[in-house]
Amino acid sequence: MKASAFAYARATSVANALEMLTTYGERAKVLSGGQSLLPAMNLRLVAPELIVDIGELTELRGVAVKGEVLTIGALTRHADLLKSREVAAHAPLLKDAVAHIAHPAIRNRGTIGGSLAHADPASELPACMLTLGATIIARGPGGERRIAANEFFVGIYETALTPQELLVAVELPVTPKNSTHFFHEFARRHGDYAIVGLAAQASIRDGRFADLRLGFFAVGDRPLLAESASKLVDVAITPAVLIEAASALDDELDPLEDQQATPAMRRHLAKVLLARCVSLLLARPDLGAGAPA
């Protein structure tokens, strides 16, 4: 199938892009890497009147560290994140996560801004934003808005962005030196969207979690920063504690049914991930064997 006809505009500046978005509103679509938008258009699932190509706005591209803040431009490609020394040093979780996104040719065009704006609940990067406590920076007709990641994702393919706004960057606090992370997802094939995934960041002191942030994805209509993580902080982890945390996690989940898995399976796999994550981070093989029921 071929895409429906549309008009095309190559934005010359952020201001120029915003002007067009203001005029066209929902009839326009921003084009970044095109790796989610174009498949949908080729299936005629979406048929925008105007495509606003922001691909040449170089000011939206790149990774920078200033003080304790890592800023990633919206147009930074998955492949750039994978290669970035700043990301490897200051947000290693992100690097691990990106390796799970699609395939090399797709990572060469897909962008972080596109991925976050697209807000697929099975995507890796939105969950990482929650885990890492990111701030998403949007620019609209009324100026710049800073949106906390946990307020940004509001549903399947739905974000806090208005059709007139452009996601321009994300800011992440630099990960503390003694912090550690875990990233894993269950996908049927290499590069597939996850059935369930977990992006976790933790600091550990004397065999206990001093801090633990668990960002689950593909467990509901949006990524989830699990509150049940608190049950594991500042306590000695025993199988019983883990089971309690898992059951608290269960209460937080609201998984969807799709081709790959029923909600029950997603709940189960989320708990398996929780156990494996805790076991690995604490180097406690005894905790990971077998999922808490």
Binding site: F186, R188, I195, A261, M265, R267, L269, A291
Partner: peptide
Amino acid sequence: LTPQVILTALRRI
């Protein structure tokens, strides 16, 4: 033999 089928058979879900 999907994970769904196998986990169901194992009564894990």
